[in-house]
């Protein structure tokens, strides 16, 4: 807690994040280059052919979509319970990134579904719950934008994010109950061929560092924007 609150001060946060950002950004670029190299060099699957390579774009996006929402939920909890001032900004900055990752997961999933299932869209459990997740992201962002008073908007968005966090597992369960056609998780069950594992792990690392960098940039931009607004207000008085 102590540690978290030290960086609640925007000044401290700007200093720390400014020092860390180059490393995460360069790390993301390196991991992405290495990951894409792996993706292009792995052999095609004996059943799926070259389309298996969509996996390396699709799975990390889906995972990051959930990581982003978890980040929003944790930030919202920090904001509601401990009134951590910077976490509102952080939650808000994570939302468009999460929505993008969700959309990416959906689009790559659809492109993968065409050769595999014969249709761009099948109403399978995972695709459907991700579509709902996308709408949850959109609703969250819309609520942020709709309320003018920034403090009220932050609180309302935080409540919504937590309600969503409670509900998402239930939605996931209900959608799975409704229909399952998608293949299950394959990394930890060892069903993914060993030759694909390094490529997938590198791509996951790349996505994670990318998310971290973009998130940091988003928070920093919001802080700078607020400072600029305060300066303008000060100048006009």
């Amino acid at each position: 807690m102590q540690f978290l609150f030290r960086y609640a001060n925007p000044h401290n946060f700007m200093r720390l994040s400014g020092a860390v950002l180059p490393f995460t950004a360069i790390g993301a670029a390196l991991a992405l280059t290495a990951g894409l190299y792996f993706v292009f060099s792995v052999p095609p699957d004996y059943q799926q052919g070259t389309t298996v390579k969509i996996l390396f774009i699709h799975v990390p996006a889906a995972i990051m979509a959930m990581v982003a929402y978890s980040s929003i939920a944790v930030c919202s909890l920090l904001s509601l319970v401990w009134r951590h001032p910077l976490s509102d900004t952080a939650a808000r900055a994570a939302a468009p990134l999460g929505a993008m990752f969700t959309a990416m997961g959906l689009i790559t999933g659809a492109l993968w579904g065409k050769p595999m299932w014969g249709a761009y869209w099948v109403w399978d459990a995972r695709l459907t719950s991700f579509l709902l997740l996308l709408f949850i992201y959109l609703g969250y962002m819309a609520l942020w934008n709709a309320i003018e008073d920034e403090i009220k908007a932050a609180r309302a968005a935080a409540i919504l994010a937590l309600v969503g966090a409670v509900n998402i597992p239930i939605i996931k369960f209900s959608v799975e109950w409704w229909n399952t056609l998608h293949q299950g998780e394959t990394i930890t069950t060892g069903k993914l061929a060993a030759v694909y594992v390094p490529a997938l792990l590198t791509m996951m690392l790349a996505y994670f560092l990318l998310f971290l960098s973009l998130w940091t940039i988003g928070i920093r931009t919001a802080i700078v924007e607020r400072r600029a607004r305060n300066l303008m207000k000060g100048a006009s008085q």
Binding site: L132, I136, L138, G139, G164, I170, F173, S174, V175
Partner: peptide, 9 residues
């Protein structure tokens, strides 16, 4: 937009 996704179950 806010509540319909939550009502899916």
């Amino acid at each position: 937009l806010i509540i319909l996704p939550l009502l899916a179950p």
